[in-house]
């Protein structure tokens, strides 16, 4: 077995299996740890400028990857006209930049605020490193090896499907540029880290908030606020 065969044909399964088992285990044994461990009460101003762009950016980018994986033919159909290809790529690039800039703000915020350093674990630091590598190599790929939205359908989608179908086709990815290979392998590290970090909050997002009726909060007896002390 060559190094490539191990990294692209075996390592992904190791990450996925560990992630599934550990996620289930954590849910069964420590259900209430499924949280983002928000630090909003400790620091909110920088969080706003980082968290909003990070979350909207990464959700958009992940959604685009998912569409490319599930219906690659549709992406190729859309890209049949170069102008449409450029629109899709530029939109993806903006989302990638949003994620990158947001993440950098969040990293700087966490490592420069003494109150946040107290509540940061080693796993948080590892997770930030993995996320940064992932987003940075993604943006670098978009610039250096354009147009990924098209070639994703040729290389990445069939490779990912070959993983799902339990017959990994390493030949599709083993000759891609190093930046792209790091992006793919780091994605599996991201999956591996899922149950061991605060990433689990992706499973406890209060999605119901979107459609539940709004709540009106009223004061029973409102007293004059005296202002800052």
């Amino acid at each position: 077995m060559t190094f490539s065969e191990f990294m692209f044909g075996v390592f992904p399964y190791m990450c996925i299996v560990i992630a599934i088992v550990a996620t289930t285990w954590r849910y069964v044994t420590d259900k209430f740890s499924y949280s983002s461990l928000s630090s909003q009460f400790l620091e909110n101003r920088n969080l706003f400028w980082g968290s909003i762009t990070w979350h909207y950016g990464i959700l958009g980018v992940l959604a685009a990857h998912l569409v490319g994986f599930l219906i690659p033919g549709t992406i190729l159909w859309w890209n049949m006209e170069p102008v449409r290809l450029y629109i899709l790529e530029t939109t993806g690039f903006v989302l990638g930049l949003m994620a990158l800039v947001g993440l950098v703000i969040l990293i700087v915020r966490r490592f420069t605020n003494s109150r946040l350093m107290v509540v940061s674990s080693n796993m948080d630091k590892i997770l930030y490193a993995v996320l940064f590598i992932q987003v940075f190599t993604g943006v670098l790929t978009a610039i250096s090896y354009r147009w990924g939205s098209s070639w994703f359908a040729g290389f990445a989608a069939p490779y990912l499907w070959s993983i799902v179908e339990l017959r990994p086709n390493v030949s599709l990815v083993e000759n891609l540029p190093l930046t792209v290979q790091i992006h793919i392998l780091n994605a599996f590290v991201f999956i591996l880290l899922f149950p061991f970090t605060r990433l689990v909050h992706m499973l406890s997002v209060p999605i119901k908030y979107i459609w539940r009726p709004h709540q009106v909060v009223r004061w029973n007896s409102r007293k004059e606020i005296l202002g800052p002390f």
Binding site: M80, P82, Y86, E89, Y145, W147, S150, W151, A153, L176
Partner: peptide
Amino acid sequence: NGAPACVGCHQNTDIGGLGGGAL
């Protein structure tokens, strides 16, 4: 064969616009 078009990975001076791919 359903494969992505050349422009996804390759540039050529003729196509103009933002050009072709760089993979």
